[in-house]
Nucleic acid binder design. Structure first.
Lengths: 154, 154
DNA sequence: AAAGATTGAGTTCTCAATCTTT
DNA sequence: AAAGATTGAGAACTCAATCTTT
């Protein structure tokens, strides 16, 4: 393997290069797995990946309630994105909005019974697809190292 | 830690849950790092993350030439996305298009001298930001495990 | 004024359909 | 007909500005 090819060395020392190569592989892996997950869920359930993640996070709560902000943090989106995401869930009857009693600036999102059903159904597709996609990625020499390291954490 | 909370067990056995938790952390890490990288590059250089990745991949080639399709694979985007991405690079004079001589269905994207300069400049911001962002993520208890495992690969 | 959520404007991505060359 | 690239249409995200409540 060529360690210091062409003009890539200008930016810094060797440790940085390894770090960048590692991150490039993570990005490639992420793009690949997420696309497969998104396609599977969209085809079989007509919902987006972010929608599912929001539902799943809400379903983890016993009362099924979470602040918009907490939801945003949990699924890695900006607040404004979550506002629209929750809007999409609401028109489908999967969640509902509730104003905080104690601090009326805050808004809660609550998962409905139907929301819980849908979440449970998608969770199966999700688990199945994730498993298969990771297996497939592990067979790609370019990504095998990262997949192996991550799976060992489980 | 609660291993089998509420209705999460419906979907499968324990191994799947650990895998899903691991992947959720990867997604969170990815969102966080990529957003920081994107912001830093946009602010300091007025270019997007995908644009930089395309330039960097082209710069790795001695002749600075790559087929659209190869570029798409390399940066994890669909072909149609790359068509538009390359279009953006072209109007800024950072790349140029060339029809393949041997197979005129294919199109090459070529990095220009100016493209190489810009790439080199952004590479410094990129390395610096990536390092800092990973350090920061390593201090977040929720992500420390994944960051540690990935960094150990370097 | 600050915190929390929303809205407006703009960007980038995907899927499906199309065009060109083999 | 198939491969490679592009275009059209639409979805989802971000930033900045705004609105409401504290």
């Amino acid at each position: 393997m060529v360690v210091c090819a062409s003009n890539l060395c200008q930016a810094g020392h060797v440790g940085e290069q390894a770090e960048q190569r590692m991150w490039a592989n993570v990005v490639a892996l992420h793009a690949r797995i997420e696309r497969e997950l998104g396609r599977a869920i969209a085809q079989r359930h007509g919902l987006g990946l972010s929608e599912f993640r929001a539902l799943r996070r809400l379903a983890e709560e016993d009362d099924g309630i979470l602040r918009m902000q907490v939801l945003a943090e949990a699924i890695g989106l900006e607040q404004s994105s979550v506002t629209r995401l929750v809007g999409r869930l609401e028109v489908q009857g999967l969640t509902a909005r509730e104003v905080c009693a104690d601090d009326r600036r805050g808004i809660y999102s609550v998962i409905t019974d139907r929301g819980r059903e849908v979440q449970a159904a998608i969770a199966e597709t999700y688990a199945e697809t994730l498993r298969a996609a990771l297996d497939e990625a592990a067979n790609d020499p370019a990504l095998a190292t990262e997949v192996g390291a991550l799976r060992q954490l489980t």
